[in-house]
Simulated scan of single mutants.
Amino acid sequence: MRTKYGGFEEVGATKDDCKNFIQSLTYYIGEHDAEMAVQRLSEKKNCCDGYLFEYTVNFNGELNRLFWADEISKKNYLAFGDIISFDATFKTNKYDMVFVPFTAIDNHCRNVTFGAALLSSESIEAYSCF
Rank of each mutant, 00 (worst) to 15 (best):
F21P: 06
E71Y: 08
V112R: 00
F59P: 00
T113V: 12
N111M: 09
K4V: 14
Q39A: 15
A69M: 02
K94D: 10
W68F: 09
V98F: 14
E54N: 11
R110G: 04
C48Q: 14
A79K: 09
E62S: 12
S85Q: 08
K45R: 15
E31F: 04
N111E: 02
N107G: 08
D106L: 05
I83R: 06
L66K: 00
R110K: 14
F114T: 01
W68S: 02
N46G: 09
F21G: 10
I124N: 12
I84N: 03
N107P: 02
A34T: 04
M1I: 15
K91R: 11
L52H: 02
A126G: 14
A69L: 06
S120F: 11
V98E: 13
L78I: 08
I124S: 14
K19G: 01
L25Q: 07
K75R: 09
V100M: 04
D96W: 11
V57M: 07
E125G: 03
V57L: 02
K45H: 14
T113N: 07
R2I: 12
G61H: 01
G61T: 02
L78N: 11
T113H: 09
K91A: 08
D82M: 10
I105G: 07
E43R: 15
D106W: 06
R2D: 12
I29N: 01
T113W: 02
A37R: 02
F67P: 01
E10A: 05
D87G: 12
V98L: 13
S24Q: 10
D87R: 13
N20A: 13
A13S: 08
E71W: 09
R40I: 04
E122C: 13
F86E: 12
F130D: 03
E125R: 07
K44E: 12
I84S: 06
K91T: 05
A104L: 04
T26R: 09
M36T: 07
F21D: 10
Y28R: 07
A69P: 02
C47V: 15
A79M: 11
F80D: 07
V57I: 06
K4H: 09
F86L: 14
F86Y: 15
E125F: 10
F59G: 07
N20L: 13
S42G: 13
N20Y: 08
E62C: 10
G115I: 01
N111R: 02
A104W: 00
E62P: 05
L52R: 03
L78S: 11
S24H: 05
F67R: 00
F8A: 12
Y28N: 05
C18T: 09
A88I: 11
K91I: 11
I84D: 04
T103V: 15
K45Q: 15
N64V: 02
E9P: 04
F114K: 00
N60M: 00
G12L: 03
Y127H: 12
L66C: 03
E10N: 13
K45T: 13
F67H: 01
D49G: 12
Q23C: 03
H32P: 00
I22W: 06
M1Q: 14
S73W: 06
E43H: 15
A126R: 03
I83P: 04
E62Y: 03
N64R: 05
S120M: 15
D96V: 12
F86I: 11
A116C: 04
D16L: 13
I83K: 05
V38F: 05
H32D: 00
T56S: 08
V98Q: 07
K15W: 05
F102I: 01
N60Y: 04
M1D: 14
K45L: 12
V98T: 14
E54I: 14
F59V: 08
H108Q: 11
F114C: 03
